[in-house]
Amino acid sequence: MTDAIIRFDKVVKRFGDLTVLDELDFEVKKGEKVSIIGPSGSGKSTVLRILMTLEGIDGGVVHVDGEPLWHELREGSLLPASEAHLRRMRSKLGMVFQQFNLFPHMTVMRNITEAPVKVLGLGKKEAQLRAEELLDLVGLADQAKKFPHQLSGGQQQRVGIARALAMRPSILLFDEPTSALDPELVGEVLTVIGRLAEEHDLTMLLVTHEMRFAREISDRVCFFDRGQIREEGTPDELFTDPSEERTREFLKAILD
């Protein structure tokens, strides 16, 4: 428990009458690479969006780095978090979106440097040096001057990864980073994510339908079903010998 960098404690999330997360308990250790799999609508994105503070919670407590994310401890009681608290907590996390969500009016370079300069207060030169390193890391060193619409989907997503890394998060969230890509472009993005997983002590949380990839890079795989973790384990356990019937059905359907 002490080395958990992310901890969901009986977290409830509702959209109107729909309970999307139903007293979810969930932990991720520092540096751990965790994949989340599960059927559509099971609440996978919601978990990431709550962590990225894009979506609030209706019950329970989310801890990040030992501190409540959506609450603040003031005068001995847990109160809803202020924007200042959310800002501080948010700086620990980064997110890579399914639709990339690059800023279309900015060059690749500015997409990556804008937040470090405006939010972290980095000097322009320093931010550019950092961006060049990151572009190198994602294999796009020669694309800095282009605009997002001039890049392929796979290239755009790699810029998305570089943009998130430029803020130096300790936790990186990936929400189906390859689902919007043409099949032939999936590989280049997965290669980059795989390299990150191998070479960095980043904590990674990855929602994906790429089962083979999840199996390769994850320390642990969680199968989500109807707002709860139905089953979790090492990739080998979960993929070769799932104990739950629901997991078996899901894997069978997706692997066929």
Binding site: M52, R90, E114
Partner: peptide, 25 residues
């Protein structure tokens, strides 16, 4: 909306989001 979400994830303030991300588009 996904532009605002990306901006929020990068910790831009609402004002920065409006003037640097949303209005130019």
């Amino acid at each position: 909306q996904n532009q605002r979400e990306a901006a929020r994830a990068l910790n831009f303030t609402p004002r920065q989001t409006l003037f640097n991300i949303v209005i130019p588009q």
